[in-house]
Design a protein around this nucleic acid. Structure first.
Lengths: 188, 188
DNA sequence: GGACGACGCAACGCAACCGTTCCGTCGTGA
DNA sequence: TCACGACGGAACGGTTGCGTTGCGTCGTCC
């Protein structure tokens, strides 16, 4: 019964409002205002701000990243950093992701949402990447997948979301090479 | 004229309130309440929330990290990760740093404060670390200090502030080894 | 011992947002 | 054609925080 175009307008407004104000300052009034709908329309869909944000965010975040199997560790890593860089370069994502991660530190429900939607997907991706490399003989069998994820995701996240420095194609390629070397050295 | 004990109580309250509510939700009323002082005492010191937070945070953040020169790249890296890990494991820091970094994305004044107080200090540290290693012949001369900082700070920040996983002494040592290998591979 | 000033406290008017309710409109399906 | 229900809009009382003001207390310096 609820009109899809209204729902979609609200969804978009939630993202824009999250980026502009952050979760802490986000208000349902502002979301409705930005979406051009009445508060009633929002409350008809969600009981409050938390479930609204959780539903809207998890729907997008759980889409996951598509990471092809290129057949070599080095190319897998190149693919990985390029894909992640493309996502995190999106202005909305670059603004919202760090905000929600910070909020997750004090809100268990948001923490759960991000853990399942973002981290598990990424952990699985990197674990698969490592496993395949081990099977190919490109990495030692005792490579630590936990450490590997930190080495793969950390520098890129730092660069894009924390330091917010420029990221050239050349930089990403060199980063992938460096990560490959780090993985080979980071035995369990 | 302003009483030092009152000022100190407010400072502490700002940190606790930042950790508990985040910058977005932080209110001067709550700070005064937590510090056990009147709102008047706060407004007598700062015109509003932003200058208050900026002054209090920058005073602490600008203390900088002391990074000894051990004489070898590997030990320098071990020192670095252990020192940073100790700082970021502090509950207040672990809560406040990601929050302020997220807020910095939409507030230029906070961004400036963090850039000078945190990143410049850290960038200088890692740049010095790389420079010394190059002089010792442990790293190639064309090592990229920008990439180096990302490789050093990224994994640790990801682990401690994003994934919030456990960090054992053994893990830190292996991380330092992996970073060393990555640095050697990440030519400009 | 008296003046000064920071202190806590309470109250002010104002604004924003909460979650709810009522209303008149409009599109859709029976 | 008519009933139903989601819609936008307006208003509700209540809460929270803003930044300011006035007051009486208390410690300090002259």
């Amino acid at each position: 019964m609820l009109r899809d175009d209204v729902t979609e307008a609200i969804r978009l407004a939630v993202f824009e409002e999250l980026a502009a104000s952050g979760y802490g300052r986000l208000s349902i009034e502002a979301v409705a205002r930005r979406a051009g709908v009445g508060k009633t329309a929002v409350y008809r869909r969600w009981r409050s701000k938390l479930p609204m944000v959780i539903e809207v965010v998890s729907e997008v975040a759980s889409m996951g990243l598509v990471l092809p199997d290129t057949g070599s560790l080095q190319d897998d890593l190149r693919m990985f950093v390029h894909v992640v860089a493309r996502v995190l370069r999106h202005p909305l994502a670059a603004q919202i992701v760090p905000d929600l991660l910070a909020e997750a530190a004090r809100n268990p429900e948001i923490a759960d949402t991000l853990a399942t939607a973002l981290r598990e997907a990424q952990r699985d991706s990197s674990a698969a990447l490592v496993r395949k490399a081990v099977e190919r003989g490109e990495l030692p069998a005792d490579t630590d997948p936990e450490l590997a994820l930190d080495l793969i995701a950390g520098p890129l996240y730092w660069r894009l979301a924390v330091a917010r420095g420029p990221v050239s194609r050349d930089y990403l390629d060199r980063l992938a090479v460096a990560i490959g070397a780090a993985l080979a050295a980071g035995r369990r």
